[in-house]
Design a protein around this nucleic acid. Sequence first.
DNA 1: TGAACACGTGAATACGTATTCACAAGAATA
DNA 2: TATTCTTGTGAATACGTATTCACGTGTTCA
Lengths: 342, 342
Amino acid sequence: MRVTQQLIAKLAGVSQATVSRVLSNDARVEPAIREKVLEVIQQQNYSPDVRARSLRQKRSHLIGLVLRRESGSLHGDPFFAQLVSETVECLIGTNYQLCVDIATDHERQKHVYDELLRTRRVDGLILVESEAYDERIIRLQEDSFPFVVLGNAFENSTLNVVDNDNVLAGRIATQHLMDQGYSHIAMLAGPPNLTVTRDRVSGYMEALSSRGMKPHVIYSDFGIEGARTAALEVLNQRNGPNAILAMDDFMAAGVLQAARHLEIRVPEQLGVAGFNNSPLCLLIEGGMTSVDLRIDTMVRWAIQRLIQVIEGDEEAGDRQKVMPCELHVRGSSVRGKVASIL
Amino acid sequence: MRVTQQLIAKLAGVSQATVSRVLSNDARVEPAIREKVLEVIQQQNYSPDVRARSLRQKRSHLIGLVLRRESGSLHGDPFFAQLVSETVECLIGTNYQLCVDIATDHERQKHVYDELLRTRRVDGLILVESEAYDERIIRLQEDSFPFVVLGNAFENSTLNVVDNDNVLAGRIATQHLMDQGYSHIAMLAGPPNLTVTRDRVSGYMEALSSRGMKPHVIYSDFGIEGARTAALEVLNQRNGPNAILAMDDFMAAGVLQAARHLEIRVPEQLGVAGFNNSPLCLLIEGGMTSVDLRIDTMVRWAIQRLIQVIEGDEEAGDRQKVMPCELHVRGSSVRGKVASIL
DNA sequence: TGAACACGTGAATACGTATTCACAAGAATA
DNA sequence: TATTCTTGTGAATACGTATTCACGTGTTCA
């Protein structure tokens, strides 16, 4: 038999209402009685039933983390791992727990929406990398359901959005490559429909044009294989680039493999840089230059904001937050002596 | 106002009980009425409230995934990413959702226990890599709370446990290195108190002794840095090993870095192999030999089993499941011509 | 034809909690 | 002293669902 407030009440000789009051720290309860009740609670090892509590207060104290990924593509994804772990860590100390769901396709995405929202499973949502200002978000807004978008800044300023400054990221990476004297810098970009792609390409373009250099963008898929193939092709061309800026560290790794295969020396003949500053960067010989997007900070902001919205005490201030990013320079893009990472 | 069964009932001209019956596919409801009710449900876009349902059925349809990790150590952890993503994928199609929690220390671990179990937040638990037959498990057993242990086989055969065959994994990796002609094979092991360490070391020992070779075990921490340091030390010694079997791919990567630093050629002068077969293995020049532990299969078994236990129709059969593993041979341990991974 | 029975439905109840309402006892005010 | 105000408590209720119980209808069997 489950220990309930009813039982505690009986044992302590009070009513169930009083037990509830003790638990919610209601000031209007006699110290002696509170003492007695707490004693019985302790002794019976009672914990409140979160289900009953949810029903009553209309709060589940669960936060949903939803991201859209192809099935099976998550395994080596450092972004995902960082995202989840960072979120869980942020939630420590709050009385919220994390519910993770992944939408593999559009159908599934609708299903996730139903499962988590319509059924009132979660109190709020963190949406990661949604592709565009989609139907889903409109519905969320209409229902005025608490949510924060992570990783995709929209024009709509009524939304709570945190994003990295991808334009800046693209720019500083490109500038760094230019500073190192690379004269023909190509960008190996992800799918062009993603905002993240567009933004980083923008930054890349800006930086180049500020010094009168011509852009060279190759669109590809995320993942090592696609990047390797694309890099092989472009590096084989006469007048190929002598530097490649890849959309993430994995793609950059693909570029390195292609270079090795073609016996092109990095960084002497080819400079390479990526994004995310994943642990991977330290595994590459000489280290790989990468832009740290500060996912940890983003997540922290998103969670904090989401909880504020849920609890109705949203602070004033910008709903849109753009996180700074920082470049980590390593051997893959530094001509001259290769910095040892040991 | 939230759309409830009460409202549906009124609109359809039936009782709330009937609506509930329609939703639970109760056969005893007149087709015409069912039709009518479904129509109203459709039209009102009704979804049942999972909180009320949980309270009533005493089922939350949430599964908890708990693992113990140091704070901040998850970011680059491919095991973690694979674990979570695989779990989420397994849960598609079941009507369960995933609740993730991480216990950073013993105190937090108790807290997680309280949050998830005592409050009846989740219906069952997947415990990952618990260090030993700990107090927590005993309590779970006493409460006869559904749970499955992943990654640590105990002697206690009443527990539902799925583990990889770490002894086998250690053995086949070692055998492979011996087959390649390496004469002095060291094992760079993880913390000795972990079962996983002990088992792989056992397999390593078995394999060696079957051919009369002497073991050489170095205990270290997980992570690149520790492995690199340990490898540097051992490789600097006179009569150092000409092959190193590392406890995971990251540690193996650390060994590679050390070798590069000392200008020891891999695989000619030093054979290297790891465990997990993470995406990392393909990033290494020539590829890295690694034992695939089939985490996907383990997770699938664990989830399936857990749901069976929760729903009370636990199939007969072994509660202990040991997953096979398979060796992926790549350039880091194959003397002679290096296999290209392109 | 009457009794036993299956069937479909609505009313009532329970799940465990938080909260409102009512009420008694005492304090404060006149 | 009579009246209003606080204060602390218990009784009652609501949250939205699933399920049991009761009941009326039509069916089957003797």
